[in-house]
Simulated scan of single mutants.
Amino acid sequence: MAIEARIRELDARHHRLDDMIDEEVKHPSSDSLRLSSLKKEKLKLKDEIQALKRKH
């Protein structure tokens, strides 16, 4: 059960990052470093989620 809760938590963070990335892209003066950082963090979360799902 703890793994499922962790997956849900990571999935929620992943969706929040997705929303943040969408908002950043909408701005004409978006910060490319911030955007890159958000995308890297999102990818790390995705990898962690997939690893947990494989264990589960």
Rank of each mutant, 00 (worst) to 15 (best):
K55D: 01
I3S: 15
D11A: 11
I7V: 12
R34N: 12
L52E: 03
D18V: 08
K40H: 13
K40L: 05
R13A: 08
D22R: 05
P28Y: 13
V25T: 13
I49L: 00
E23Q: 10
D31S: 06
K39V: 05
D31F: 10
K53R: 05
A5R: 04
E23D: 00
H15A: 10
R6Y: 04
E41T: 11
E24L: 01
L17T: 01
E48T: 06
R13C: 00
I7N: 02
E23F: 09
L17D: 06
D31W: 11
M20V: 01
M1H: 12
E48V: 01
S29G: 12
L35K: 03
M20H: 03
E41P: 12
I3Q: 14
E9S: 05
D19L: 09
A5S: 12
R54N: 08
K46W: 00
D11F: 04
H15S: 02
D47H: 15
P28I: 02
E4P: 07
I49H: 04
E41F: 10
R8N: 08
I21W: 08
I7W: 00
R8M: 00
L52A: 07
R16W: 09
R54G: 02
L10Q: 06
H56T: 15
L35I: 05
H14D: 08
I21G: 00
R34C: 13
E41Q: 15
L52V: 04
L45G: 13
K46M: 10
D47G: 15
K46T: 10
R8Y: 08
L17C: 03
L17Y: 03
H14Q: 14
K55M: 01
S37W: 04
V25E: 13
K46S: 09
E48K: 07
E9Y: 12
H14G: 01
H56D: 14
D18T: 04
E24I: 01
D22Q: 11
K39R: 13
S29R: 05
M1C: 05
R6F: 06
E23W: 08
R54C: 00
E23H: 08
R6N: 08
E4Q: 08
P28K: 09
E41L: 00
S29T: 01
E4D: 12
E23C: 02
A5C: 08
E23G: 05
K26N: 05
E48L: 06
D47M: 15
S37R: 14
R8D: 03
K40C: 07
R13D: 11
E24G: 03
A51M: 10
D11V: 04
D18C: 11
D22G: 10
H14W: 13
S29P: 01
I7H: 04
S37L: 13
L52K: 01
Q50I: 07
I3D: 15
R34M: 13
K46L: 08
E48N: 07
H14K: 14
S37N: 06
Q50L: 09
L10A: 06
S30P: 02
D22I: 06
L38C: 06
D19S: 04
L33Y: 09
L45Y: 03
K44V: 07
K44T: 13
H56V: 15
H14S: 08
L10G: 01
K42T: 01
A51C: 11
H56I: 13
E4L: 02
H14E: 11
K39S: 01
I49C: 10
K39A: 06
H15C: 03
E9G: 05
D47F: 15
K55S: 04
A2D: 15
